[in-house]
């Protein structure tokens, strides 16, 4: 069964030559019209994600991977095309940042957990497991303002891994924490996969894609240039990078 259908999705961003973010800048800039540069982040991208599969998405920086994930998760709307979701999607994106620094870990877990769709009862029941996964039990009542960036990221992954519904969307997973934490993330990921969760995984790391994904896509300048078995895509990605460096 197809869980996610992406049909001819396009997305462009208009990048101004001069950025104006305030009323004052707009008023003073009225006599100096600015130009906009069109950045085509995604150009007619189509693919399907089937129930239970793990799909890898590879591509260089700026190839449109993160924009694609945000559209898949419903955070950005597409300019053109269609995204059809037939299952709940749990995104794990930009987790290194974005906590309320004035709240302690427990309240932040409630905040992020409920945003990710967990009920208050589910969060209460999972609290010990989440703090244990992140190894932060003894700092549970410490404000996030006093956390290191590594501690915040660990907590974010712990919440997100417990919030997974049907489809898990991961951006550059396993790039956080020490070796022990990364291993726990990998084990948790394998558990989720074994339970039949569908996973979309963005990564630059050929090892991650080949060892975790069944199938992969290679994005370049917002277009899918290759789609197929994960190993072939990872090899092509590495050879593309190597070629660019030698050129």
């Amino acid at each position: 069964m197809t869980l996610i259908t992406v049909d001819a999705v396009s997305k462009a961003f208009w990048i101004p030559t001069v950025r104006r973010d305030t009323i004052r800048e707009h008023l003073f800039g009225m006599l100096q019209p600015r130009r906009f540069h069109r950045l085509q982040a995604l150009d007619s991208v189509s693919f399907e994600v089937r129930d239970g599969e793990t799909l890898g998405i590879m591509g260089r920086n700026g190839s449109g991977k993160s924009t694609l994930l945000k559209i898949l998760c419903g955070i950005y709307p597409p300019d053109r095309g269609r995204v059809e979701r037939r299952a709940a999607v749990t995104p794990i994106l930009d987790l290194g940042v974005g906590w309320n620094p004035e709240l302690d870990a427990v309240d932040n877990v409630f905040l992020i957990g409920s945003v990710m769709g967990l009920s208050l009862g589910e969060i209460r029941r999972s609290m010990d497991a989440i703090l244990g996964f992140a190894e932060l039990q003894e700092f549970a009542n410490l404000k996030l303002a006093h956390y290191s960036s590594g501690m915040s990221s660990r907590l974010a992954y712990a919440v997100a891994f417990h919030a997974v519904r049907d489809v898990l969307v991961l951006d550059e997973i396993f790039a956080v924490g020490d070796a022990g934490f990364r291993q726990r993330c990998e084990e948790r990921y394998r558990d989720l996969h074994a339970q039949g969760h569908t996973v979309l995984l963005v990564s630059h790391d050929p090892r991650t894609v080949t060892s975790f994904c069944d199938r992969a896509l290679l994005l370049d300048h917002g277009r899918i240039v290759m789609e197929g078995p994960a190993r072939e895509i990872a090899d092509r990605y590495v050879s593309t990078l190597t070629k660019r460096i030698s050129d």
Binding site: I71, G74, P77, P78, D79, R82, V83, E84, R85
Partner: peptide, 15 residues
């Protein structure tokens, strides 16, 4: 869920 332009859409059947 249809947002803005006619040609773009995101259909959500995931409650």
């Amino acid at each position: 869920m249809t947002v803005g332009a006619e040609t773009m859409s995101a259909v959500d059947r995931s409650r």
